[in-house]
Write a protein that binds this DNA or RNA. Sequence first.
DNA 1: GGCCAGGCACAGC
DNA 2: GCTGTGCATGGC
Length: 218
Amino acid sequence: MNLSISGLYNKLYAYFGDTGWWPAETRDEVVIGAILTQNTSWSNVEKALFEMKKNGVRTLEDIASLPVDQLAAYIRSSGFYNQKSRRLHSLATRILEKYGKLDSMSSESMTDLEDFLRPINGVGQETMDSILLYALDKPAFAVDKYTIRIFSRTGVMEDPTLYSVKIAVSKDLGNDVPMLKNFHGMLVYLAKDFCKTKPKCDECPVRSYCAYYEASME
DNA sequence: GGCCAGGCACAGC
DNA sequence: GCTGTGCATGGC
């Protein structure tokens, strides 16, 4: 059976509903989390966020005014802490220099924001799209490893890559920001709940489309 | 104890 | 352009 992108969205929505993704209370926290979660499980990111907050570091301004190695000590549990502390510090500094705060940044155009973010060290495609969508409410779509895996297994796309998925999703879901936000959130839930190394296919909402499920039944 | 996790940059081909 | 590698912790 064939499944389109909006078909996948509808299947997932029927099961998960509104996920309220991204798990952050402020725009600043989205940006921080977007760097910290790079190739890292969210539970380790949470520990780092907790440690930062415990020490009064909650905003990009707090980060920019902190020595990098101090920041590194706080985010230790998120792994790659030397890299990430440098990335976070420079990203925070550059945003503050150019825009002052994220609220005023969100009134800029997509292309201007992309041109600003893309060259920043440590901001790749997924990090940029996460920031655009979840911190700045722009119609971007963050493609992660989960997304590729699910699109591939469910046959939504033949040979999904980061860029082909981005294009196809924006074609199918358009510029509907709440929908784009929720789609990514639902894909994360799906991947975490059902697609892990020891998959739980029995109750998966899209198992009837999934090549992995079929293979596991043989 | 080994494998994996929501990436990214950079070297070498 | 594509592929391999370093970056590091915590949970299973």
